[in-house]
């Protein structure tokens, strides 16, 4: 029995501890926004947050997230679109869109760690997320834009 929290909700799944988190999310919990791309942690399509840290869920045994908080793409927008999602829409980032859940989750983690990342920091942090459509220029732009939106949002809250 695996017991952990997904997008703020406590979940218990009757499954072996070695089962990859990706397939528990997709097949047992119906959260199909997180994608299968390579199965070996090389493409980043399966990226989720585990206690805030970007994690390749295809390489993560569900037993290792026991008691943790998992956030998927579906959980990011629980209270309306996040700054990253708004920036993604503003910059019209997605093409085929298959990698974008992973890109957005990775970008969210990046901005949590580095609220104002440089291009080099973006390139470094996002290197694990492949976009076969090559929407990288738009991804970079959207991350900078999300940083601005988040700053505005925070200063707005302070006022």
């Amino acid at each position: 029995m695996a017991s952990f929290s997904v997008n703020g909700e406590h979940r218990e799944v009757d499954i072996q501890a070695s089962h990859p988190l990706l397939w528990v999310l997709r097949e047992r919990l119906g959260l199909t926004g997180t994608k299968f791309g390579c199965g070996i942690g090389q493409c980043g399509a399966c990226t989720v947050l585990v206690d805030g840290a970007p994690t390749r869920s295809c390489q993560t045994p569900v037993g290792s997230v026991e008691g943790s908080e998992v956030t998927t793409i579906e959980g990011l927008a629980a209270n309306g679109l996040t700054s990253v999602q708004s920036a993604w829409i503003e910059e019209q980032v997605p093409q085929c869109g298959y990698c974008q859940s992973g890109q957005i989750v990775s970008a969210t983690a990046l901005l949590n760690a580095r609220p104002r990342p440089t291009d080099e920091e973006i390139d470094q942090f996002m290197a694990g997320n492949i976009c076969r459509c090559g929407a990288y220029t738009a991804i970079r732009k959207a991350i900078h834009r999300a940083a601005e939106l988040e700053e505005d949002r925070v200063s707005g809250d302070e006022v």
Partner: peptide, 14 residues
């Protein structure tokens, strides 16, 4: 299709 693809709602074959 951009909003659906930015929120995990777009339905792909898989």
């Amino acid at each position: 299709d951009v909003e659906a693809k930015s929120t995990g709602q777009a339905v792909f074959g898989i």
